[in-house]
Simulated assay, not measured.
Amino acid sequence: MAYTCQLYATYLILKRYDVKLLSAAGLFIGGALVLLGIISIYVSGLLATSLIIVIAIANSQRVLLGLGVTALVSYIFWYYYQLDTSLLVKSISMLVISIALLLMRWTLIKGYLANIKPSANDNQERHS
């Protein structure tokens, strides 16, 4: 259910910003969504909290972003202190998730954001 909501929210956000699915940004977002879906098989709350964070960022809602980050941190604490799985398995899964998210961030910065040229207005706004 959460994956369906994530797919629909991604579709609506891409449609709002007129990003084609077969463009570089669309393919990156689709790949990140698939990776997040695979990771969330083992850590189910990650997908739901990331959905809240993405919707908050897309709509510039600071309160919702704060609630999403708080929910994510709370879920990580709850997941880590569950007693049905050993701490070793949970630590390894959290390590794999953090490495995957850091790699996605690095790919975004190096591959996608490096191609964006700052405009002259950006520099003027920062100095004033």
Rank of each mutant, 00 (worst) to 15 (best):
M1P: 01
A2D: 15
T4H: 14
Y8D: 03
A9D: 12
T10A: 10
Y11A: 06
Y11G: 02
I13P: 02
R16K: 03
R16H: 04
Y17K: 12
Y17C: 08
D18K: 03
K20M: 03
L21H: 05
L21W: 08
L22H: 05
S23C: 03
S23T: 02
S23E: 02
A24D: 13
A25M: 08
F28E: 04
A32K: 01
A32N: 01
A32F: 02
L36K: 08
I38D: 14
I39M: 12
I39T: 08
I41A: 13
V43E: 10
S44P: 01
S44T: 14
V54R: 00
I57A: 09
A58D: 03
Q61R: 04
Q61S: 14
Q61C: 09
R62N: 13
R62A: 02
V63A: 12
V63I: 01
G66D: 08
V69H: 07
V69M: 10
T70Q: 05
T70I: 09
A71S: 12
Y75I: 08
F77K: 09
W78M: 09
Y79L: 01
Y80R: 09
L83Y: 12
D84K: 14
T85I: 12
V89N: 06
S91M: 07
S93C: 11
S93E: 04
M94K: 04
L95M: 11
V96Q: 07
I97K: 08
I97D: 00
S98K: 12
S98N: 00
I99W: 07
I99C: 03
L102W: 15
L103W: 14
R105I: 11
R105V: 06
T107D: 02
T107K: 11
L108V: 08
L113G: 07
L113Y: 04
A114V: 09
I116G: 02
K117D: 13
K117A: 15
S119L: 10
N123Q: 15
N123F: 15
Q124N: 00
Q124P: 02
